[in-house]
């Protein structure tokens, strides 16, 4: 499902050139492959470190976010999805740092801890169908796609939506369906959904999205600015169709000295 990063575009341009150039091309291809393998390894190592960091953060925050540890499936997906593929080239060196990164057009890719937390809060199952509002670079969709049957994602900024769609296709995510347009009305043709995630934060929860949430389903919205998530709004719809919400502070913080 995940293809390793390659850098093999060099030889295509030098098909009809002399022998020396052939040799040079092969050497460069070899070097490129070597570099790509080394990078892949290095990215894998970085990813493992990132997972370890998230694990520690979860242990510290467990009481506050209402869970002892994240779902093992979530953690293993976080350890697999190549986050560096979802950030601009100039940010790749930081791809596995526990920080948000700019992805152009004034948008960001959330910090891994928050992505893991939001994914965990959705409590998705393998047969679930998920709707995402705000594709961004496609990272959150990719994480979810490895956990569920189908992900539908809508992006409002055209260039972002196009590049994310191409990226997800290239990386082999066949169960992600993306669309460019207004996410406010959701994607009713394929609803209801078991889980909805609204990464493009709004001042209110669009009423149509709540309609498209299946009874027993969950909806998550990060509240805050592009680089700092203040808290996460978790909306649950019970089997009777009634809504309840929780506002979850991602950090282990109590406002009162000596408070609990």
């Amino acid at each position: 499902m995940i293809s390793p990063p390659t850098n093999a575009s060099a030889p295509t341009a030098i098909v009809r050139v002399p022998l020396l150039h052939y040799a040079l091309a092969w050497v460069s291809l070899l070097l490129a492959c070597l570099a790509s393998t080394v990078c892949a390894d290095s990215f894998e190592t970085q990813r493992s470190k990132m997972i370890e960091l998230i694990r520690q953060d979860v242990i510290e925050t467990s009481q506050f976010i209402g869970t002892e540890k994240f779902d093992l499936r979530v953690m293993s997906v976080m350890a697999r999805v190549p986050r560096h593929e979802f950030v601009p080239k100039e940010e790749r060196a930081h791809a596995y740092e526990n920080r948000p990164l700019p992805i152009g057009h004034g948008q960001t890719i959330s910090q891994p801890y928050i992505v893991a937390l939001m994914t965990d809060l959705l409590k998705v199952g393998v047969s679930d169908r998920v709707l995402e509002i705000g594709t961004g670079s496609g990272y959150q969709a990719a994480v979810l796609a490895e956990l569920v049957r189908e992900v539908r994602t809508i992006e409002i900024i055209e260039p972002l939506g196009r590049s994310a769609s191409a990226r997800l296709l290239r990386l082999g995510y066949n169960n992600i369906h993306s669309r460019i347009g207004d996410g406010y009305y959701g994607w009713p043709e394929y609803g209801p959904y078991d889980a909805i995630i609204v990464t493009a934060a709004a001042g209110h929860v669009p009423p149509p999205l709540l309609t498209q949430l299946r009874p027993g389903g969950r909806l998550v919205i990060p509240v805050g600015s592009r680089f700092f998530v203040q808290d996460l709004l978790l909306v649950k719809k019970n089997l009777a169709g009634q809504l309840s919400t929780r506002q979850i502070l991602p950090v282990r913080f109590v406002p009162l000295t000596g408070g609990h």
Partner: peptide
Amino acid sequence: DVVPLRYAPGLSLHAVTG
């Protein structure tokens, strides 16, 4: 006109329309 602005900060989850 394509994607209308919808500014309703803190709208009730029970609201039927935006």
